[in-house]
């Protein structure tokens, strides 16, 4: 059943253009990041001929810091906007009640959506990473695969959390607007909690900053084990509680 429902999701993403939007955004920023890192210092220097601007020479690390920033800002927003309505809009539109009345397990319906979204996003992220790595290697031959890859794996864990939060918000809310309210309320609360030193090591919101630290220095999996475990646990709680809520919800 889950694969049949995922097939419908795949058709939807192809036919509504969501597939192409996400593909474009991932590829665009994958290629743009190393190019920006390489040529931005020269561009800044060329802006003024009267003032001398000292910019450190770019390195391969700048490509992946730029890539990580783009993933955590623009790609993040696009992913949230595309996925946030996945359950809520079906409830609002009436298709959820039509499908639920066919006797399918509503929890499987939510899982199929989440599974599709995570597999789809990870596939996009993999393509984007290898593209970014290819261009980074072209422009900076000293580019290190392991550090860049490890940082992207960390983003994948963060993405897993963001997608569970998205599906949770969408399962609870009855419209895109309500779901957006729930999503951003939780997102903001977690960011505020991040300033508490005792909470910080367990907070999924610390992951983006660790990504940059890793690229800049070195990979230390031991320091990240706490946020990774807590992020995965929190994600599981979100996906299971979202599915359980939707299972009992009136449509």
């Amino acid at each position: 059943m889950v694969t049949k429902l995922m097939k419908k999701e795949w058709n939807e993403y192809l036919k509504t253009g969501k597939f192409y939007i996400l593909l474009f955004v991932f590829i665009f920023f994958a290629i743009l990041s190393p190019i920006t890192a390489k040529f931005m210092p020269e561009f800044i220097k060329s802006l003024s001929q009267e003032i001398t601007i000292t910019v450190p020479p770019p390195t391969w690390r700048d490509s992946f810091v730029q890539f990580s920033k783009n993933l955590n800002q623009i790609v993040f927003i696009v992913i949230v906007l595309v996925f946030l309505g996945s359950v809520a809009e079906e409830k609002n539109h009436g298709t959820a009640s039509l499908v639920a009345a066919k006797g399918i397990d509503r929890r499987k319906w939510v899982f199929s959506k989440f599974l599709f979204q995570i597999l789809f996003s990870l596939a996009m992220l993999t393509i984007a990473f290898f593209l970014c790595f290819y261009y980074a290697k072209l422009l900076f031959p000293e580019t290190q695969f392991y550090l860049a890859f490890s940082s992207t794996v960390l983003f994948a864990v963060y993405l897993f959390f963001i997608l569970t939060l998205t599906i949770f918000s969408s399962s609870i809310g009855n419209s895109m607007l309500q779901s957006a309210g729930i999503f951003f309320a939780i997102f903001i609360i977690l960011n505020i909690l991040n300033i508490i030193p005792q909470v910080n090591p367990y907070n999924p919101m610390t992951l983006p900053s660790i990504e940059n630290q890793w690229i800049a220095s070195k990979v230390a999996w031991g320091n990240t084990i706490k946020p990774i475990i807590s992020t995965v646990l929190l994600s599981l709680i979100l996906i299971f509680s979202g599915a359980a809520y939707f299972h009992k919800q009136e449509l």
Partner: peptide, 8 residues
């Protein structure tokens, strides 16, 4: 009011 997936 029947609602369907409009893209199909």
């Amino acid at each position: 009011v029947p609602s369907f997936y409009n893209f199909f």
